[in-house]
Amino acid sequence: MNRLKQLFEEKKGNILSIYYTAGYPNLNSTLDIAEALEKAGADFLEIGVPYSDPLADGPVIQKSSQTAIDNGMTVKLLFEQLKDLRKRVSIPVLLMGYVNPVLQYGVENFCASCAEVGVDGVIVPDLPMYEYEEMYKDCFEGHKLSNIFLITPTTSEARIRKIDELSNGFIYLLSTSSTTGKNLSVSNEIEDYFARIKGMNLKNPTMIGFGISDNKSFSKASEYANGAIVGSAFVKLMGEENYLEKIPAFISSMKGKEAMTV
């Protein structure tokens, strides 16, 4: 069974996912970070495939992507690094990246390489639903990869239903319509939106992302969804000295009480 599906069957709430950029801060830090995150208690990982023009991302992830590219990271090299993934990491792993590098690697090759190294799913924010259905769905499903769609506060109900139908892992719920790296300021409006989605009883689990940077925002998000995703706040940490050693404390602080009881 796909590790992602298994996770959501076994754990219903407070699921913590961490995003980080492959090849950042160092070209070969990709697997070390993954291993440290699993040990520290992250539930699953999203490894970012760097792209020169990441238009949904704020400054922190833009900078990490550019550094990773300058370090020499490529899709091909990433898959080479990930050959040892399943010797070192057992939690679900997704790749998150923009569509152009995937196209150049070849969609079929990309899916095959994901399956080969033990990647469980893919998030491609600029791959639209229509194109996914027409050209990519069979390939993704053939390799048992979950494709993760995003929804925002302005996504219509009909479209959310359609996304729910096409999804087979979880749905990525954006806290606001924004680029990454902004702080989540919980307002009535956002809570109404979270509650509205919760009330739709979607067949897929949901994870809230964008603006999750501390235990407070993580806990808030977990009230409405199965868990939350931390990106920029973690990538920022990876830019610091001794970044690997700082991972356990970061994860504990994100999880708060839950971490202490484990």
């Binding site: 238009l55 949904a56 569509v99 924010p125 600029d126 791959l127 639209p128 229509y130 194109e131 769609f149 995003l150 929804i151 925002t152 302005t154 996504t155 219509s156 479209r159 954006l174 319509s177 924004s178 680029t179």
Partner: peptide
């Protein structure tokens, strides 16, 4: 052509 945009831009 097409519209290869993140969901945030869709509306």
């Amino acid at each position: 052509g097409g519209a290869y945009i993140p969901e945030m831009l869709y509306p």
